[in-house]
Design a protein around this nucleic acid. Sequence first.
DNA 1: TTGTCGGCCGATCGCCGACAA
DNA 2: TTGTCGGCGATCGGCCGACAA
Lengths: 225, 225
Amino acid sequence: LDSQLWHACAGGMVQMPSVNARVYYFPQGQAEHSATNVDFPASLRANPAILCRVINVKYMADTETDEVYSRIRLVPIKPNEVFEDCNNEESENNTSATEKPVSFAKTLTQSDANNGGGFSVPRYCAETIFPRLDYSTDPPVQTVLAKDVHGEVWKFRHIYRGTPRRHLLTTGWSTFVNQKKLVAGDSIVFLRSLNGELCVGVRRSTRSTGGGDSSAWHLTGQQQQ
Amino acid sequence: LDSQLWHACAGGMVQMPSVNARVYYFPQGQAEHSATNVDFPASLRANPAILCRVINVKYMADTETDEVYSRIRLVPIKPNEVFEDCNNEESENNTSATEKPVSFAKTLTQSDANNGGGFSVPRYCAETIFPRLDYSTDPPVQTVLAKDVHGEVWKFRHIYRGTPRRHLLTTGWSTFVNQKKLVAGDSIVFLRSLNGELCVGVRRSTRSTGGGDSSAWHLTGQQQQ
DNA sequence: TTGTCGGCCGATCGCCGACAA
DNA sequence: TTGTCGGCGATCGGCCGACAA
């Protein structure tokens, strides 16, 4: 899964550690995500936070809901262990400001989510993220292709019409809403990736169980030695 | 699940053993239902058939497809074991001929399964199984309620019209076809249960994996002693 | 600039009798 | 007796500009 699209869907509040970063793992915090009570051994209860090293970060998206989540593999650092220094946050100086991918998120209105309706595209999104529209025809119209988190391509009719003029997605939009089971209040994210490709992601408003399968909660390595 | 409806869906070829009946269990026959190869221990391979006693029979239906299947618990009979005599087949003299539930099965035609069409009810089915229709109105019409294997009630508009006159299910039929994912060639079963209730079941034509979960294949008790 | 609404047109759904197998 | 067909009216999907927030 493309890291740029993943971050656009996750939102600006989400910062991810990089590989080899040192992080504290809080068992209690993770346990509170669980539906069932978790009974820790006494040795873990005594340690509210465990210093770990990140050995792998995988960006993932739920196959059904498109909700993004991540799998972070941790290995506990033994107290006497030595390790090289490392940034905790993803280094942001790899990409200059000019080549940062531009994305735009909009919360779906009732009219956007209504069956039979289209999608009202904010002008900023249409002009800076969508492919350039040829305004010489009347009305200006084009077909827009956008790739979702699974790499599936969605086709939309993008038209600039009405008085006053506004950008709309019409044909193809309701199919997208139905397939993704979007409702008013959910958000949609458009992103122009660095190679110029248009991507589309969703962000659900209602808190579901959250990404991934709860059986995927594991620690790598042996915590008890 | 009602035993009468279960048998109507399973068809007349299916006879079920009763509890305490003696049956032969053929491991090879069951293995051939499995998708993967089954490696029997030598002790089982030497015994192609194992005399068992039926300790439980449960009539079940697939939650999704409505296909009926059964779970039969068996216990091997030790060679020197004594046991009381017992009928192998379900005793049929419990119910007299008059109170036997009457059922009717019809294979869906293309017209029956077509979206937007109705269901052509064979006269015999309408007159002997459906609730009595009041022919004094023109056209004669009634609402018919039928319960499926899960106890869910389906509502159909039953009308007697056309030239020549024929029985049809109209409103409600296409919903049923879509929800049950019926196609031409599948069969539908109507049954009037002993308490006068109308029931409806389906019988699929295409051989799917067959009822139940393959992980449910188990023997009760210890075969090897 | 953009959210919501009513109008409207075309596609589809689904009920109908005709007709023939 | 009943399977299939074409007709056709009702409903729905979906594109449109008007209008106001």
